[in-house]
Amino acid sequence: MVMKWDDFLAAAQERGEYASRDEAERAARVVLALLGAHLVGSERAELAARLPDTLSPVLLNPLQAPEPLSPDRFVRATAAWIEGATEQTARWDASAVLSVVADAAGDDLMRGILLQLPPGYDLLFGRPQPL
């Protein structure tokens, strides 16, 4: 099922405690562009199909990352792309957006996504995995 744009932004705004929908949208676009650079194949396409149409191109059309970023480097990259962000606020931004992405993806797709990413992303998605 495709998540609606308003539902996605409302959830991201609530989880990120953003003052405006514009802040939630900016965080969503940055985080999804970075995530899209790390995903390939059917998982990326299936995730894009479950996200609002407005966000699908952001996920599908990034430059591919030369190497997967660790969760900490992903957070630092997020901070670099959000004006005024610190690593602490960028971790909050990434988790707010990625937890909504995880809800849209569902458990089966999330397992495939997490297999493509370095260890530790499960926490950013709000889906801690057993060791």
Rank of each mutant, 00 (worst) to 15 (best):
M1Y: 06
M1C: 04
V2T: 14
M3R: 15
M3D: 15
M3Y: 12
K4P: 12
K4R: 10
W5V: 08
D6K: 04
D7E: 01
A10Q: 08
A10W: 04
A11T: 05
A11H: 09
A11W: 02
A12N: 04
R15K: 07
E17S: 13
Y18A: 10
R21S: 07
R21Y: 00
D22S: 07
D22T: 07
A24E: 08
A24I: 08
A24D: 09
E25Q: 15
E25I: 14
R26Y: 10
A27Q: 08
V30D: 12
V31R: 03
V31H: 11
L32A: 11
A33G: 15
L34P: 10
L35A: 15
L35V: 05
G36Y: 04
G36R: 01
H38Y: 11
L39C: 07
V40E: 14
G41R: 04
G41H: 09
A45F: 14
A45Q: 14
A48T: 01
A48I: 09
A49C: 09
P52K: 05
S56L: 02
S56Y: 02
V58W: 02
L59P: 03
A65L: 09
A65V: 03
A65P: 00
E67K: 11
P68M: 13
S70K: 14
P71W: 15
R73A: 15
V75C: 13
V75R: 11
R76A: 13
A79G: 15
W81S: 05
W81V: 15
A85M: 08
A85H: 11
A85C: 11
E87K: 02
T89R: 15
A90T: 04
R91L: 10
D93Y: 01
S95Y: 08
V101N: 06
A102P: 02
A102N: 01
D103F: 00
A105I: 10
D107F: 04
D107Y: 07
D108S: 12
D108H: 00
L109D: 03
L109R: 05
M110S: 02
R111A: 13
L114W: 01
L115P: 04
Q116N: 03
Q116G: 01
P119R: 13
P119G: 10
D122F: 06
D122Y: 05
L124N: 01
R127W: 08
P128I: 03
P128D: 07
P130H: 15
L131Y: 13
L131T: 15
